[in-house]
Design a binder for these strands. Structure first.
Lengths: 221, 221
DNA sequence: ATTATCTATAGATCTATAGATAATGC
DNA sequence: ATTATCTATAGATCTATAGATAATGC
């Protein structure tokens, strides 16, 4: 019977990886609660490992939380890649990624809260939505599709800020229709990038793949 | 000789107000450093008051920091009001407020860092830029000037997120021309709200009042 | 034999208060 | 006489490590 956790060489390494993952997962639950000061003992209890074990893996709480944020962004990035794998048009790739990210605040509230409590680090991170949006913006500029963009960093700034602020809005207004709010903002952003009004609306009205299928297993690689 | 700090009744009250202000100011310096965990003793040392005094004014560090963020936003809001007092057009009021806020990241880096480290609280706060932008958006909708806006909360979401993300960008890229970056984003946002391209550009090219005059005294009421 | 993990704990750090002091009110 | 502030400190809490234990490697 094959082991689940990674394909690393021996059992000792796999156990170590599992312990590390448990610590990261525990950190994410505290992050989701906005409790950035949780005592290390509480974190290790949540991870169900001994206190001393923490220091085998991390030097400080700050370091653990940093890794935990990166890991969450990474997982989200992988999900976006999976879902947009078939698409060619940068405008559509961007639109789908943004629309799905907005919906995620309802479908996966834990990840959502981790992102909201991670402050602005998502904006400059090499993981997650930001680098993908950057790639799509540059592709769209080259193809002439995003004619209104002169500086991709500035476009990315408005987009990244919108992702965060949208998350906050949906968190503050639990009864608001997340899909509708997200799609409207996506439309605004597409127009801002240079798409004609009608086309922006059309792209945001297209059907989306079923997210729940992808979210079935929480531990998606 | 009249006292400076407020016009409150007696000297005891004024001294108390000064102590409280010193604590808030000290909290803001730690906030600017991103040190949300500074021991209360260090905060009181920075404020140059005894440790016990802290508990005469606040119940917890969290409460102090909350007040410190509100105070910073409040001061910024008052500055914006002062500067835009003469203007009538909601589009121009909004544009000036946004353009000045962007420039503030260079002119007043301490306030800038306080805002960036305050997380997303600026987005939903009743103080600072957000309520003013909300007011301007609704005025612009009524006058038909912001024809593209259907839901003011969504417009405010993109705008608020952009404020924060712009601050982060300018912080990460110290050599970038803040005025230029800010004006371009303002232009994008005005177009998003429904202004014609040419008019958005024109409004963002107008001269701004001299901010340094207003920033002369840091303790502007 | 090696390596990860565990438990127990010394020492550092921090919070919150008690009681003393200093300043102002009346 | 009242009120804000101060200093000193008890007790709580937390970090980081030392040394023991358990599991795997070879």
């Amino acid at each position: 019977m094959p082991e689940r956790t990674g394909g690393t060489a021996n059992r000792t390494e796999r156990r170590k990886a599992r312990t590390r993952a448990a610590l990261i997962r525990a950190a994410q639950t505290f992050l989701a609660e906005g409790n950035l000061n949780a005592p290390i003992l509480e974190i290790t209890r949540t991870a169900d490992v001994g206190l001393g074990t923490f220091y085998n893996h991390f030097d400080s709480r700050e370091q653990l939380f940093e890794v935990a944020i990166e890991e969450a962004l990474d997982r989200h990035g992988a999900l976006l890649d999976e879902i947009t794998a078939e698409l060619q048009d940068p405008a559509e790739i961007f639109a789908q990624a943004f629309r799905l990210t907005g919906r995620l605040h309802r479908l996966h509230p834990d990840l959502s809260k981790v992102l909201l409590n991670s402050g602005l680090s998502l904006l400059a991170s090499e993981k997650g939505l930001a680098p993908r949006a950057h790639r799509d913006i540059e592709a769209g500029m080259r193809s002439g599709r995003f004619g209104a963009v002169r500086d991709p960093d500035l476009a990315l700034t408005v987009i990244g800020g919108s992702v965060l602020a949208l998350g906050r809005l949906l968190h503050d207004q639990p009864e608001r229709d997340a899909a509708d709010a997200t799609d409207r903002i996506t439309e605004d952003l597409l127009r801002m990038l240079g798409l004609p009004t009608a086309e922006a609306a059309e792209i945001c009205a297209r059907p989306l793949p079923d997210l729940t299928a992808f979210l079935g297993d929480d531990k998606a690689a």
